[in-house]
Amino acid sequence: MVMFGNRGAFSGLLAYAISFMEGIQGLHAWQWIFILEGIATVAAGLVAALVLYDFPATASYLKPHERAYVVWRQKFAYSEQGEDEDFSWQYVKDAICDWQVYTHVLLYMSIIGPLYGVVFFTPSVVKSFGFDTADTQLMTIPPFVFGTIVLLFNTFYSDRTGLRSPFILFALTLNVIGYSILLSDVKWGAHYFAIYLILGGAYGAFPVLISWASNNFAGHYKRCVGMALHIGIGNFSGAMFSNVYRSKDAPRYKLGHGIAMMFTWLGIFAVITNVIAYRYINAKRAKMVAGGEGGEGLKISGEEVRRLGDKSPTFRYNL
């Protein structure tokens, strides 16, 4: 996601520089954009194939004891008893039937939709302020840099505190303020400032919401299915937002901004719903383990804990 933010920042600078390549080798500047960015993408893919490893156990840059520690930590990251390593279709069913998968899908859609909208239509919105094409490309750079800074702040302090929801709500609040300004009849400077807030909110929320879902889907196979549903269904909102910023709505794009605001409030609703449900379930399980409801949690075996995953009385949902 940091790379995504940097790409957004530097793509504007790159497009500005490439605009001066008009006519070189008989090609238009827009053709050079596809050629140069395509070359960079292919080169990055080749480098990744050489330097990335499939699993911690095969990472040659780690010492043997480091590899063993990383493998152990991954296995026991979500449960003191580890996670079941044997596949069962029951885990697929557990993921499909779990309510929290769908509240997280709604949250994902509330972020990724407006993110796609603002990333791909920021140049159009900025250009509506009256700038020419070259200046528009330059003006899109600072908001993406700000978005990257908010992303780094959110992810760092989310990991430091072990919390997810407060930082997602902070990011969604930035979106609400930003879209409120864009929907208001104010000067272009205020609208430009709103783009900063929206990019900060969209980028800042995305990695944290992915981590939140991953933290609360357990064990291993259920998490795989749950995350596939989470991201797969959630990305449909990106397709929606490719059609809501219509050229006939320029320069205010009230329809697109209004739909993005609606999605943002749906995300806030999803976060609050999850937090209330997680707090209730965590408190109930704490009583079970402590013996307040007959001590059922104390009688469960390690094998049963691994099989139940996040439904185990010993599992605590991350807030």
Rank of each mutant, 00 (worst) to 15 (best):
M1V: 14
G5R: 12
R7D: 00
G8Q: 02
L13A: 11
L13C: 01
L14F: 09
A15S: 15
E22R: 14
A29T: 07
W30K: 08
L36Y: 00
L36D: 01
E37V: 15
I39C: 05
T41M: 10
T41C: 07
V42H: 00
A43W: 09
A43S: 11
G45F: 11
A49N: 14
Y53N: 03
F55H: 14
P56M: 06
A57V: 15
T58L: 07
T58P: 03
S60C: 00
L62K: 08
R67P: 00
R67K: 13
A68H: 04
V71G: 05
V71W: 00
A77R: 11
G82R: 04
E83S: 04
F87Y: 10
S88P: 10
W89G: 03
W89L: 11
Q90P: 07
K93Q: 13
I96P: 01
D98V: 05
H104W: 02
I111A: 01
I112H: 05
Y116I: 12
V118S: 04
V119N: 10
F120V: 14
V125D: 03
V126L: 07
V126C: 03
S128L: 10
S128G: 13
F129R: 02
G130D: 03
D132G: 11
A134I: 11
A134V: 12
D135R: 15
L138P: 03
M139P: 14
M139C: 13
V145F: 13
V145N: 05
V150S: 08
V150M: 14
V150K: 14
L152A: 13
L152V: 14
N154D: 04
T155A: 13
T155P: 00
L163I: 10
R164M: 05
S165I: 05
S165T: 13
P166F: 00
L169V: 14
L169C: 12
L172Q: 08
T173G: 15
N175M: 14
V176F: 08
S180E: 02
I181M: 05
I181C: 02
S184D: 01
D185A: 12
V186R: 09
K187Q: 13
F193H: 04
A194R: 09
Y196H: 11
L197T: 09
L197Y: 04
G201K: 12
G201Y: 06
G201Q: 06
Y203W: 08
I210S: 10
W212C: 04
N215L: 06
N216K: 04
A218M: 09
G219D: 07
M227G: 01
L229H: 01
N235S: 13
G238F: 00
M240V: 15
F241E: 02
V244A: 01
Y245T: 08
S247V: 15
S247Y: 09
A250C: 05
R252H: 14
Y253R: 07
G258L: 09
M261S: 13
M261V: 10
T264A: 06
F269R: 08
F269G: 11
V271F: 06
T273V: 12
I276Q: 02
I276L: 03
A277K: 12
R279F: 00
R279C: 02
A283V: 06
K284W: 00
K284R: 15
R285M: 01
A286D: 10
A290K: 12
A290Q: 07
A290V: 06
G291D: 01
G295A: 03
E296D: 14
E296Y: 15
I300V: 14
S301C: 04
R306G: 04
R307S: 09
G309V: 12
G309K: 05
K311T: 12
L319A: 00
L319K: 05
L319S: 01
